[in-house]
């Protein structure tokens, strides 16, 4: 699902999905579709989505969210501050 939330500066779209342990968040309009997050994920949680952001890029989607181990490699390797992981509960 896609949420629209208000940050300090602007309205952003957020793709967010949770497992029982982790939540993966993608800030839609920051993504440049480089594919690094999809590639570095050791459990293949992320896949390219069909959503088109305002710059014409397809952000990733946490399709296999239940496989997420919370390693944050996607967050740490995203060059555009577009992905962040939260612990749930």
């Amino acid at each position: 699902m896609v949420f629209t939330g208000l940050t300090q500066q602007s309205v952003i779209g957020l793709i967010t999905r949770s497992s029982s342990k982790y939540r993966v968040n993608i800030i839609v309009d920051r993504c440049k579709e480089c594919g690094i997050c999809i590639s570095v994920c050791p459990t293949k949680v992320l896949e390219r989505s069909n959503i088109l952001n305002k710059y014409g890029y397809h952000p990733p989607e946490p399709v296999n969210i239940d496989k997420c181990i919370g390693c944050k490699l996607c967050e740490y390797n995203c060059p555009d501050f577009a992905v962040f992981i939260e612990k749930v509960g």
Binding site: T7, Q8, Q9, R23, C34, Y55, P79, F81, F84
Partner: peptide, 30 residues
Amino acid sequence: MAITYTHPLDKHLRLERIPTLYCPGCGLGI
């Protein structure tokens, strides 16, 4: 479980200038 909408590094960034001008996949942002 409140959903946070901000990246943990947002407070260190000038958000009105994000996204950066860097090409897709540029290592600089990492």
